[in-house]
Amino acid sequence: MKKRNSLMLIALVFALLMGAVACGGGSGGGQGGGESGAEDIKIASDIAYPPFESSKGGEPVGFDIDLMKEIGKRANLKPEFQNVTFDGIIGGLGNNQYDAAISAMTITEDRQEKVDFSDPYFNADQSLMVASDSGIQSVEDIGDGTVGVQLGTTGEMKAKEFKEAGDITGEVRTFDTIEDAFSALENGQVDAIINDLAVSQDKANKSDGSLEIVQNIPTGEQYGIAFPKGSDLVEPVNEALTEIKEDGTYEKIYKKWIGTEPKEIP
């Protein structure tokens, strides 16, 4: 008797939880999805990476967000953004937790083994950012100083390459978000940050001159939208992307978020 009671209690709690989640999900997904007949797709993004993605009043904004919405319009998809940590994206796509991910993600061979990528949509490079009064001018000046990077990024890979080659001898410290790495640099807890150029540039611009980019680290890397392997979204997204690149929309988004004209369109 007693056991049955506690089982029923558990069932009740579970039912309540399910109900709460279902309500939350329902009201979120229900907004104006139906009329156009657009397909809802779940997009993973690490929404702490301005200018590509950041949160403004609880809504995601940024280059990637605008681009994805534009793609959605043309391919009849309704993107619904989910904030996740960057290092969890590939795994989540592998488990089909998301339909796609747009998160300033560089197309690499390693990642291509796990996920499918769209055509490239952004030419990116790495960069070295330091405190303006640090005296560090290039990677060679870091010596045994500490380099901050974000876990799972190409910046982390590049920093480890430098370390293996002996260009730097200090610690490569990984942070969960780039914002944590930035605040460690501002606090003087790391000596430099290796990270995507456009993102670090954005941070340096907002720092009132306390942080600066001292070196571009050209890598020729390009961002792509990632999908679970074999996804049938790749083709319509690529078609929309080509249109956006050709009809001038790409330049508009680029100018709005990066602040300059794109040197070349990938």
């Binding site: 309500c23 999900g25 329902g26 997904g29 229900g30």
Partner: peptide, 8 residues
């Protein structure tokens, strides 16, 4: 109301 399971 649309039902979305909390786990897939």
């Amino acid at each position: 109301m649309q039902f979305e399971p909390p786990i897939e």
